[in-house]
C-alpha cells in the first residue's frame, strides 16, 4: 500500500470544512451522534446482515446531506480493509453451521459473520472519516474536552494525529529515496525492511524533537492553546442530535429487517 494513500487516509483536513454542512452544528452534537451510531451499529447481532445494510444506508444519507463526497469517505475506509479481512478470515473455516440456502448453495454462519465483520469495519471507519472530514480532528477533540473528557486524553489524541503525519512523511521520503536507487527492483529483503524501520524510528524521533523545539519556541507549556471562542448550543443542534441518534438506536433495538424477514 502506498504511503500516499496512508497520508491521504489519515488526513482529515484536506477537503475543506467550508463545504461541509456539519460545520453549521455544534461539534458536540455531531460527535455524540457519531458515538451513538457506532455503538448502535456495532451492537447488532453478528448474523444480522439486513439491518447492517440499513445502517449503511443511514450513513450514505448522512454523507449526501453533509456535502462531503462519498468517494472521499470510502477511500479512507480502504486502509482498514486488509486488517478487517484478517480479523474475519478464519470465520468461514471455523464456523460451518448452515444457516440458509441461496440458489441451492448452502450459506454457513461463518461466511455471514465474515461479511458482517467487513461491513462493520468499513462502516465504522467511514462514519469516523465522515465526521473528521466534516468538522476536523481538532474540533472533535475540543468537543470531547467540552463534554468532560480529560484534557490529558484529548491532548494525547491531538499529538497522536500530528505525529502520525510525521512518521508517514518520513516513511514517504525514505520510500522515495529507496525507489530512486532500487534499479527497478521493488522487492525488499527482510534485513533491509528491519533497517528501514529502525531508521524510520530514529528519523521520526529526531523530527518530533525538532517540532517540539519549535513549539517551545512559540511559548508552548504543555497545553494546547484554546481560542476561547465557543459555539453555543442551539435548537438545531438538539434536533440534529435527536434525529441522528434515534434512527440508528431504533434500528439496533427493533431490527426491522430481521423482524420483517421472520414474518
Amino acid at each position: 500500500m502506498s504511503f500516499n494513500l496512508i497520508a491521504d487516509t489519515i488526513s482529515t483536513e484536506k477537503t475543506g470544512r467550508a463545504e461541509s454542512t456539519f460545520t453549521r452544528y455544534d461539534t458536540r452534537a455531531v460527535t455524540l451522534a457519531l458515538f451513538c451510531y457506532l455503538v448502535a451499529m456495532l451492537s447488532l447481532p453478528a448474523t444480522n446482515l439486513g439491518d447492517l445494510l440499513v445502517m449503511g444506508c443511514l450513513l450514505m444519507i448522512a454523507t449526501s446531506l453533509s456535502g462531503i463526497k462519498l468517494r472521499t469517505v470510502l477511500r479512507k475506509s480502504l486502509l482498514v480493509l486488509p486488517l478487517v479481512l484478517l480479523i474475519g478470515l478464519f470465520n468461514p473455516i471455523i464456523d460451518r453451521t448452515p444457516i440458509a440456502t441461496f440458489l441451492g448453495v448452502i450459506i454457513t454462519r461463518g461466511w455471514v459473520t465474515f461479511l458482517t465483520i467487513i461491513i462493520r469495519g468499513v462502516l465504522a471507519v467511514s462514519a469516523v472519516a465522515l465526521v473528521t472530514e466534516g468538522v476536523g480532528f481538532r474540533s472533535i477533540c475540543d468537543a470531547l474536552r467540552r463534554m468532560g473528557v480529560p484534557k490529558l486524553f484529548t491532548e494525547q489524541l491531538l499529538f497522536l494525529h500530528r505525529y502520525l503525519f510525521v512518521i508517514v512523511e518520513e516513511a514517504q521520503e525514505m520510500s522515495r529515496a529507496r525507489l530512486a536507487r532500487s534499479g527497478g527492483r521493488n522487492k525488499l529483503r527482510l534485513k533491509v525492511w528491519a533497517t528501514l524501520i529502525g531508521t524510520l524510528l530514529i528519523r521520526s524521533i529526531d523530527r518530533a524533537e525538532r517540532i517540539y523545539g519549535a513549539m517551545l519556541a512559540r511559548g508552548y507549556q504543555g497545553r494546547m492553546p484554546d481560542r476561547g471562542v465557543k459555539r453555543r448550543w442551539h435548537k438545531q443542534d438538539t434536533l440534529l442530535l435527536i434525529i441522528a441518534t434515534t434512527l440508528p438506536i431504533a434500528t439496533a433495538i427493533f431490527q426491522p429487517i430481521r423482524y420483517l424477514s421472520a414474518l
Binding site: 483536513e13 476536523g136 480532528f137 481538532r138 500530528r162 512523511e169 523530527r207 525538532r210 517540532i211 523545539g213 519549535a214 513549539m215 512559540r218 511559548g219 508552548y220 507549556q221 492553546p225 484554546d226 481560542r227
Partner: peptide, 23 residues
Amino acid sequence: FQNPDDQLIMSSVEEEIAFGPLN
C-alpha cells in the same frame, strides 16, 4: 526554523498563527 514543516503543527493557517499568542 529552516524547515517550515517542523514549525507548522496546527490544522489551519489561522490556528497556526494564533498558536503563539494564545500560548
